[in-house]
Amino acid sequence: MNTRKGMFTQVWIVICLCLPLGSISANEHSLASGNKPLTQAQLADVQALYTQPATTEALSALAQQLNLQLDTRGQFIQRRHLQVLKKPLLSQGQFIFSPTQGLVWQQLRPFSTLMVLKDQQLIQQNSQGKVQQLNAMASGSPIAQQVPRLLQAIMAGNIAALSADFTLFMPANYNAGTPWQLGLQAKDPQLRASMGNITLSGDTLLRSLIITSSQADISDYTQIQFLDAQQGPLSTTELELFSLGSESNQ
C-alpha cells in the first residue's frame, strides 16, 4: 500500500508537466545548466507566492496565454535538494505529452524507468523490465482518484476545474503575456500534507516546476526543468510507448 501511494504521489509531479513546454537555453535560465540550489532569496519568493491568492482576472488572462493542444516531447532534468546531502539527487530523461494519448515519463539516468499515465491507468516499468499497472479508481487513494480529472483540466487549460481542488496563487503584479508563476495548494489538508506546494513558472511556455513543503521550512525541495521541447504529431515509436502493459492484457 505504501508503494502504491508513493507511485501516485509521483503522478502529481508528472501531471504538472502537461502544460505547454519549450526549450530553455543556458543564457535564458542559468538554473537549467547548473547544479546550484535555489538561493535563499529565490526560496523566499516561492514562499511569498503563497500569500498572494490569484485573482479571477489574472487566472483568465493566464488561461488565454496557454496553448495546450499540441503533442509535445522533450527532455527533463529533475533535482531533489536535501539539507542533509551536499549535492542534489539528479535524474534525467525524456517526456511525451499528448492531449489524446496521455503522458510518458521516461527516466534514463541514473537508471532506466518508464511511467505512462493514460485515462484511469498508471503503468510503470522498473529498471528490471517488470511492469506494474494501477487503476486510479480501484486504488483507494484520494490522490489517485483526482488524477484523471485534474489531468483533463490541465490539458484543456481549464483553470476553473483546477480551482475546485486547489487554492491558486499568482503574483499581484502579473500582466497578461508576461512571465508568470502559478502556485497550486491542495484544499484537502491530508492531500496538502502529502503533496506540498507545487509552483509552476513560465512565459509563453512552462519552464520550471518546484515542489516544496506546505510548512514554514522549505529548505528541502524538488525542482524539474524542461529542455529541447518539440511539438508535432507523434511518431510510430512514440505511440508504441503508450502501449506499455497492453501485452499482458491480451
Rank of each mutant, 00 (worst) to 15 (best):
A44E: 14
L151H: 12
A156R: 12
L239E: 12
N175V: 12
V104R: 02
D71W: 02
A156K: 12
I143W: 09
I13Y: 03
A153E: 07
G6Q: 15
I210K: 04
G129H: 07
Q69S: 14
A144L: 10
P142L: 06
Q128I: 04
G157S: 13
N249G: 06
L134V: 03
A161L: 06
P99F: 04
M137I: 14
A144R: 02
D71M: 02
N135S: 15
T55L: 10
S141L: 13
K130Q: 14
P179M: 08
S25E: 08
S194A: 14
G196Y: 02
S139Y: 08
L108A: 14
P20D: 04
K86W: 00
A41D: 09
R207T: 05
S112Q: 15
R79C: 07
P171S: 05
S60Y: 00
N27G: 15
A136D: 04
D228M: 01
L150H: 07
L117C: 02
T199H: 11
Q106E: 13
L21G: 04
A161K: 10
A193N: 15
G129V: 00
L234Q: 04
L19P: 00
S194V: 08
T178I: 00
L168K: 04
L31P: 02
V11A: 15
L49E: 06
E240Y: 01
I154A: 07
